[in-house]
Simulated scan of single mutants.
Amino acid sequence: MVSKRLKATGKGGGTLVLDARSLSRQVDGDTGMRARIKAAELNGRRVALSALTPLEVRRSEQAGRRLAFLLARFDVRPVDKAVLHTAGRLLGTTGLDGHEYLVDAVVVATTALCLPPVRLVTSDCSHIPTPTAAARELPQQPEIGLITV
């Protein structure tokens, strides 16, 4: 579920997608991450993430309440057939092992299926770039810009 404010501002501004580390930074109150998300929202970008991402970031107590609050504000994208198909194509194209790269492939596939222009915020410089580069080769997929934090 997406907040009314994000639905109203998300028209045509594209999408900022958070991976687990960037969501974790937001939950933990990182000022740089907060500023990046605020700027995206002010510029009409939708802030989104894969439904798998909160499972990687799981928190308890006060941090858990902050995570729940953020999930109510952000566009939590389901892992549907389109995402699974795209993630499978990314793994197949790159030759990456599904056991090791499954979540990364799903996050990149989710990103590839978002409203362009799309930017993926990540700190993963080892796993994310390969499927992201492969996504650029898929027909009718937007180019994914990487923002490293």
Rank of each mutant, 00 (worst) to 15 (best):
L67D: 02
V121T: 03
F69K: 14
F74W: 10
K11N: 05
D104Q: 01
F74K: 01
K4E: 15
A134R: 04
L120H: 04
R136D: 11
C114N: 06
A109E: 04
A109K: 02
T94E: 06
A39N: 12
A48M: 12
V121S: 07
L113C: 06
I144F: 07
L113W: 04
R46L: 15
R65I: 06
A51R: 02
M33E: 14
L52Y: 05
L146G: 05
L138A: 10
I144K: 04
L90K: 05
A134V: 07
R34F: 09
V2P: 00
R46Q: 13
R21I: 09
V27L: 09
T132M: 08
T15F: 03
R59A: 05
T15V: 03
T94K: 04
V57R: 00
T122P: 03
L49T: 08
V47F: 07
R21Y: 13
G13K: 05
L18N: 02
A35M: 10
A82E: 13
L102I: 01
R77F: 03
L55D: 09
S22W: 06
T9E: 15
S60T: 14
D124A: 11
A112V: 03
L84G: 14
S126N: 09
M1F: 10
L102M: 07
S126G: 02
K11L: 11
K11C: 01
G95F: 02
R25L: 15
C114Y: 05
E61Q: 14
R21N: 13
S60Q: 12
L71P: 02
E61H: 14
S50T: 01
Q140F: 14
R58N: 12
A87K: 04
L6R: 14
I144M: 05
L138K: 11
V118Q: 00
T53M: 04
D75M: 09
T148Y: 15
A39R: 10
A8F: 10
A72Y: 03
K4V: 13
L84C: 15
T130D: 04
V17I: 12
P116I: 10
E143T: 14
P131R: 00
I147Q: 08
T86Y: 05
L6F: 08
R136T: 14
A135K: 03
P54F: 07
A135Y: 06
V121P: 00
D97T: 01
T132F: 02
I147T: 14
G32M: 08
L52K: 00
L52D: 01
R77N: 01
D19G: 02
M1K: 11
Q62C: 00
E100G: 06
I37A: 11
K81C: 09
R89K: 15
E143F: 14
G44D: 12
E41W: 11
V149N: 08
T86F: 06
T111Y: 02
T111C: 03
R58D: 01
L120A: 02
A87V: 03
E56D: 11
